[in-house]
Nucleic acid binder design. Structure first.
Length: 116
DNA sequence: GTCGGCACACGAT
DNA sequence: ATCGTGTGCCGAC
């Protein structure tokens, strides 16, 4: 983490701050950590802390799973496991900014509607 | 060693 | 559906 690029560390740190049972969008992280959504995605895609950073809690702003190195099925399974039944989005303060996070329920619901 | 171009798990228009 | 965004990495000067 120390020897990682500045931006990378920031993004990873932001991802780590996502509370259990909630998910954050790439755009939200991008807004909180700075930079662009693609940059966040890139960091996650090549993140050196794959098993450490809860990248499964990072989804698209469209509420789709986006991508996951371990497979979208696993990602979905993890999200379902961490679901806490919260139904309202929340804002997590991050380094002076706020990271908008959504309940896992929201994603699951959207996915159900999409998969329908 | 530095500059330019390509790739990326997205977002907004 | 297309362009924009920011970073990382590879290849060329």
């Amino acid at each position: 983490m120390e020897h990682l690029p500045k931006y990378t560390g920031k993004v990873l740190k932001t991802a780590l701050l996502i509370p259990t049972g909630y998910v954050a969008s790439y755009g939200g992280i991008a807004k909180a950590a700075g930079g662009g959504a693609r940059a966040v995605g890139n960091v996650m895609a090549s993140n050196p802390f794959a098993p450490i950073v809860p990248c499964h809690r990072v989804v698209c702003s469209d509420m789709t799973l986006g991508g996951y190195g371990g497979g979208l099925s696993l990602k979905l399974a993890l999200l379902k496991r961490e679901a806490r039944g919260c139904r309202s989005e929340k804002e997590v303060p991050i380094d002076g900014r706020k990271l908008l996070v959504f309940p896992v329920e929201t994603v699951l619901n959207k996915l159900s509607k999409t998969y329908a």
